[in-house]
């Protein structure tokens, strides 16, 4: 779309800005989970009972939904990160950055559909 006053700016409030906002928020969430995740895995160094006790928390269905949200954040951050690399290094990246973002969102939806098809029955007891 042309950069007219009606449409605001090229960046603000548009695909470029919102994909950047989502990249930041997903990155922060993943980082803080990573800190916790290294510490919960460190329980293997304490005792089998301590590790199994911590892991039983992750098997709760509500935590299972949290895992789904975490995976959604990771998959978005991964695919959008590749889009950023393409915008930086591929000569057509800047021109096609909006198409690339739609590609990211479609791949994200496909990956999440496959993941949830497997994960939701596991966390709600069906295996």
């Amino acid at each position: 779309m042309p950069n007219t006053p009606k449409n605001g700016t090229l960046y603000r409030g548009r695909e470029g800005m919102w994909s950047w906002v989502a990249h930041r928020i997903s990155g922060i969430a993943i980082f803080f989970f990573l800190l916790v995740h290294v510490l919960d895995t460190a329980m293997v160094r304490v005792s089998p009972e301590a590790y199994n006790a911590v892991m039983s928390i992750y098997k709760n269905p509500i935590m299972g939904l949290g895992e789904a949200a975490l995976v959604a954040a990771i998959v978005y951050h991964a695919f959008n990160g590749i889009r950023i690399i393409l915008v930086d290094f591929w000569s057509g990246g800047t021109k096609n950055h909006k198409t690339l973002l739609w590609g990211v969102l479609i791949l994200w939806a496909i990956a999440m559909a496959g993941f949830l098809f497997r994960h939701l029955p596991i966390i709600f007891g069906g295996h």
Binding site: T41, V44, P48, Y51, N52, M55, Y58, K59, G64, E67, V71, I74, A78, F115, R118, H119, I122, I123, H127
Partner: peptide, 23 residues
């Protein structure tokens, strides 16, 4: 990370299979 997530959450019984013996 995709390899990590696939092996730990998608194979076997997913998160229910993760315990000291598995890790």
């Amino acid at each position: 990370i995709f390899g990590h997530l696939f092996v730990n959450l998608m194979t076997g019984e997913g998160v229910h299979r993760i315990d000291f013996g598995f890790v």
